[in-house]
Amino acid sequence: MAVVGGRTQWEIGGQCPEETRLVRAPAGVRGFDPADMTIRVGAGTPVEELDAALAEAGQRANLPVSPGATVGGVLAVGRDDLHALGRGRLRDALLEVVYVGDDGRLVTAGGPTVKNVSGFDLCRLLAGSLGTLGLLGEVILRTWPRPAAQQWLAGPCDPVELRRSMYWPSSILWDGEITWVHLEGHESDVKSEAELARSLGCEPTDGPPPLPAYRVPTGALEAGQPTGSYLVQIGTGMAYVSEPRPIPGPGPAVVTLHQRLKSEFDPRGRLNPGRDPLAA
């Protein structure tokens, strides 16, 4: 059994066998009080719809807004967008989730408030679990104000030096030669930080470069001779490469913990078979 979202990242971490029964999560905004800065939505809600609803209140969620993708899909895959450096991690956007467990029961993890340490933090575990521990049904997300101004710049400068000089860039990307930086915030601040970036050799540009196909930890870049092109997402431990390359594997204890978690949460292997978070 597997939940299907927008199929935008359907093959990440392996493929479900053909006989897998596919279900869809409920869609739609279930509750939104802008003054709480949290929103409750069905996991099947398209991210674009979520974004449009929040934009009306001048807010946004820290989820990558890709056409066709669903909120549940994006959370289950757990991939940060290019702004993790400044906006924080995707996994931290998730406050509460209602999921379907292996035995068909509805389980609630986390809580609706922006701060909560009641019990173990299953939300972090479920974000990026590829639906292998539970099928996401409904979520509550933390939202943030949409910044007044934003700006991409690019140029041949040292990304480390750039990061040292800027206060809070939302993204720094580096392909080995060119550095891209994204600024957002109050208008005068974006302007002054952009001036700073220009003094280091960057010029305004329309947006980030296209992403190479495969995501790897930055450690994988250091491990072997680079082949093909790459793009490093500075300060996040993530890089994108055009040719697949070996990723240093996890230690045996980490593998064992993955196996044990799977067998505790889904002893019969019913949930999203064929997919493995370690291979994502």
Binding site: D121, L125, M238, V254, L257
Partner: peptide, 18 residues
């Protein structure tokens, strides 16, 4: 065992977060 990754990201479940 080290849970998570000091560089910022490693594939797999977020054992660190749990």
């Amino acid at each position: 065992v080290v849970l998570g990754d000091a560089d910022g990201w490693t594939p797999g479940l977020d054992l660190r977060g749990a």
